[in-house]
Simulated scan of single mutants.
Amino acid sequence: MLDLDRDVSGLRAVPAPSLPLARLVEGRAVEEVADLLPRLFNLCRVAQTVALRMALGLERIETGALAAEIAREHALKLSVVWPVRLGLPVQAGQAALGGEFPDDAEGFSRYMRGEAGIAPLLRAVAARFAPGEGVCGVLPEVTPERSLTLTAQENSIAARHLAHPVMLHVERHYGRGPLWRVVARVLDLKAAEQGNLPVPHLTPEGVAIVPAARGLYAVRAEVEAGRVRDLCRVTPTDHLMADGGIMAQALASLPRAKHAEARLLVDLLDPCAPVTLEGGHHA
């Protein structure tokens, strides 16, 4: 069970101030807005562009580019960024998977003991965070109906794979922590390569819902005479950083002796914007 009282010293992650998005786009032509925003927020450009064009009523981008972007982002984290962060050798591109990733608990246990693919990365993460450390409790899954609500929600790539046998196995033994989320990244890479990602769609209320490398983007726009009157954009990081959300709970579950691992935990949770750690004993 998650114990939110373990971090009595107030370790927390503070996001950088957000841009005044509505003011930036008000009165601009729809094509100008569709071109401007992905340049302002340079991560997940394809996902943002798809969501914006859908919300603005413009012609959509072919979704193969979206799957390719998600696969590239996942492969980079698994084969380069996280191995370097953990002092492991860099792997070459898609070799991060090392062939077939296991589909059941027994196969996963064998995989973890070997050297193929990302097994060394998974062991390194498990060694840094014991069961119950860096974890989050079960949060409501993001849905189209509450995608624009800035409350604590499981808006993550893990939400796309909650019922996978390996995810259930890791959750039972470690909790919804760093190892669980790295496994989700592997499964989502496979899903992107196989064309099994959620399909972008527009809700009856005009909210564009689009899969991205961190979860689901949600964008709603008000357009009049070809110009944007208002725009609302909610990202996976907005839900990650919400009060009582994944980031807050994960940091709160670190015992004081593990506060030095807080920066690594933030890196594995992977917000799309800079955050500053305050409080605790992380220095």
Rank of each mutant, 00 (worst) to 15 (best):
I61V: 15
H201A: 12
L202M: 13
S9Q: 11
R23Y: 01
E62P: 00
P211D: 11
E171Q: 09
R39E: 14
R53H: 10
R263D: 12
L66D: 04
R85L: 14
R60D: 10
R220P: 02
L66C: 03
R12V: 09
R181I: 06
R113Y: 00
H161F: 10
A250Y: 08
P102K: 09
A130S: 12
E141T: 13
V33N: 04
E171C: 07
R146V: 10
L268A: 04
A92H: 14
P144C: 10
R113Q: 14
R229S: 10
W180R: 09
Q94K: 06
R53D: 12
K77W: 03
P140G: 13
V81L: 14
S156T: 12
S156N: 09
A283T: 04
V186E: 07
P271K: 02
A47D: 05
E224R: 13
L66V: 02
V223T: 07
L24A: 06
H169R: 01
V46R: 03
L168P: 00
M54R: 15
M241A: 10
V210Q: 07
A184K: 06
A55W: 10
E31C: 00
N155L: 13
V84E: 14
R85Y: 00
E26G: 02
A55N: 12
A92D: 15
V46D: 07
